[in-house]
Nucleic acid binder design. Structure first.
Lengths: 232, 232
DNA sequence: TTAGTACTTATGTACTACATAATAACAAAT
DNA sequence: ATTTGTTATTATGTAGTACATAAGTACTAA
């Protein structure tokens, strides 16, 4: 058994496209380009870099996917504000991620949940609480499997929305499917876990009468089954 | 002043490359491709999709950047496990992000900090504590501006490392520059804030003698100046 | 079994060509 | 004079051809 592969790192012949991509990125930074600025023409970039327009376009295609540039015919290309989570979304597929990454994401979701307390107490309104109560009111009807997840999404989704942090909310929404995937897998292997002592209803009650620290404690208790899984 | 732009949404003629990218992604999902599987040849894909190899390559270039595929001459292309944070890293540049996103990221970093407690207490070792102490011991020499940030990175970086969650650690490492950027800006506008009542030294002390909840409270106090900024 | 050689092939890169959309400049019309 | 229509221009989007190169395969020789 040769462990040579571990001792010596395989060298990847990076392609022109890779180099052009990083050169372009470095160029934009060095020249302090900001959203709205126009980029040179493709052919000019190709000439300047000494490569074919083809390679330049493959590199630009990547930046375009990231939302860093937009380009229209004749008008040319302009820098844009990228959607920081868009690229993440493309890649968060539980079926193609490794076990370690899946576990990392599972934990990361728990971190996000525990962080809700501090932000929610900065901005919660009485309308928010009312909305939460109406969600919880429908909970009794939805204990069965297909509806449970749907209800989880509604309740926790509302909590994230209350933080007023759009990135935070979208981020959790993207992690959730991976979280549920890991959970399903865990349940298959280690069996169904008990339910947290603190229910959604309890959490809403805390939001009305308690402070941020109470809510954090409540959330921790609510998530206890999940944290217990991590100990194993 | 015409607000027509707000009333009617501009329609984007999506390019062939965009469509091919999503078709490919959908194809990989539908066929349940997993890392290691070989993809059809570029020309075959082009023929099947009825587009030029050029367009296919621009789409593949994107997947290649995301780390979803690798390709070598003659061997063809294989699906790989993507690096979920690699794409995020390319885009997290404070200079090209909008104000809202910057604020969101600032808050998100605080959420990550507050989440440290729960994971650290699952896995901390006495060696970790010792390492932290040695970092804190050097703190007294590094109160000046260029060194303060460096020290912050060392201390908090170690905390993340103690969670054993690589994604978590890398994620925070990527958010940190944006966080510092927002902080610098905030300080210029609203003036220097007071320092948190709980120091790094105190946090280490809590790690030795307290529980997760103590640590969370300590961290909240440590970060209090930052949370206070959010209230304004 | 190893090493060397020739052959094959899919990707990487370059180049040409042209359709198309968007812009600009100008002319016509109300 | 502002609007509408026409024409010319041009940068991007797409197609297609060609070829170098790396990597795999098969075969041969030592």
């Amino acid at each position: 058994m040769s462990d040579l592969k571990n001792d010596i790192q395989r060298l990847e012949a990076s392609t022109m496209t890779d180099m052009v991509e990083s050169r372009l990125r470095e160029y934009l930074k060095r020249k302090s380009f900001v959203p709205g600025d126009a980029l040179p023409k493709e052919q000019e970039l190709a000439d300047a870099l000494g490569v074919s327009r083809n390679v330049v376009r493959e590199a630009l295609s990547r930046l375009r996917m990231l939302g860093m540039i937009e380009s229209r015919k004749k008008r040319g290309m302009v820098l844009t504000q990228p959607d920081i989570l868009g690229s993440l979304e493309r890649v968060l597929d539980p079926l193609i991620l490794g076990k370690n990454t899946l576990r990392d994401i599972f934990e990361l979701r728990l971190v996000l949940e525990m962080g809700l307390a501090d932000l929610i107490y900065l901005r919660k309104t009485s309308e928010d609480i009312a909305a939460l109560e109406s969600i919880v009111a429908q909970e009794v009807n939805k204990q069965q499997k297909p509806f449970r997840v749907e209800h989880e999404i509604a309740f926790h989704g509302k909590l994230y929305q209350m933080t007023g942090n759009d990135t935070y909310m979208r981020f959790q929404k993207m992690l959730l499917p991976v979280f549920e995937y890991v959970l399903d897998y865990e349940i298959q292997v280690n069996g169904q876990a008990e339910v947290g002592k603190v229910t959604h209803h309890d959490l809403v009650e805390i939001l009305r009468t308690g402070d941020a620290e109470d809510f954090r404690r409540g959330m921790k208790a609510h998530l206890k089954p999940h944290f217990d899984r991590l100990k194993a």
